[in-house]
């Protein structure tokens, strides 16, 4: 290893030979792939923050919010690679998010109705998902153990059942018993959500 390589941060993009490989890694939420596109898009994020006169500390927020939208679009299949670099698409999303952040800042002083025609479907979907995530977090808190851990390990942190059983992170010693319990917990979570929706007339 050269001394210059040892002294500089490792390049996460090095393991991806082309954009197709990078896209496939992004679909499986590979950490290096996410770091790769974020590192490539970070200079643009700084530029946009300056250009839209946003708070200089909002670079990370802009990058994270845009990455969430980008990854969700990859996950639901609405983004398909067409020869362009995935980071280019992330930069495009960042532009729209930066504009949205600017509008949000302006609505602090003006009425929201004045800007109802400036909505962005991707950002609205992202906001909706964020609200749902916040609700699920509350519901999981209401459920308590072992449901919280069983659902978190599989649906949020993405560990395979075999790993959870092997590591002994729950009281369940077989994958079957773990799956049965998780299914029960999911039914319970859905019922809590259903009750909440009925209560709020949604």
């Amino acid at each position: 290893m050269r001394i210059t390589e040892w002294l500089t941060p490792s390049n996460p993009c090095r393991q991806f030979e082309n954009n197709e490989q990078l896209f496939q890694a992004l679909k499986s939420l590979n950490n290096s792939a996410i770091r790769c596109v974020q590192n490539k898009a970070r200079p643009s994020a700084k530029q946009l923050v300056e250009q839209y006169k946003l708070d200089p500390e909002s670079v990370d927020e802009l990058l994270n919010q845009s990455s969430l939208i980008f990854l969700r679009k990859i996950e639901d299949g609405s983004y398909q690679i067409q020869g362009h670099a995935p980071s280019s698409y992330l930069v495009e999303i960042m532009k729209r998010v930066a504009l949205s952040m600017t509008r949000k800042r302006q609505t602090n002083y003006e009425s929201i109705e004045d800007h109802h025609d400036l909505h962005d479907p991707d950002i609205e979907a992202s906001n909706r998902q964020r609200e749902s995530a916040e609700l699920v977090r509350q519901f999981l808190g209401q459920m308590g153990e072992p449901c919280t851990s069983v659902i978190r390990l599989h649906h949020i942190e993405g560990y395979p059942d075999e790993e959870v059983v092997r590591q002994g992170w729950t009281r369940y010693t077989t994958t079957d018993s773990l799956k049965i319990k998780r299914s029960d917990c999911m039914k319970k979570l859905i019922q809590i959500a259903r009750q909440w929706r009925n209560t709020n007339n949604i």
Partner: peptide, 27 residues
Amino acid sequence: DDERLAAAQVLEGLAGLRLESKLREVA
């Protein structure tokens, strides 16, 4: 139907939590 809608919202929320968790891990 309302049960299916609630389930969809839960799955959407869990997906959002998973992405947030992943981005925190990457950060």
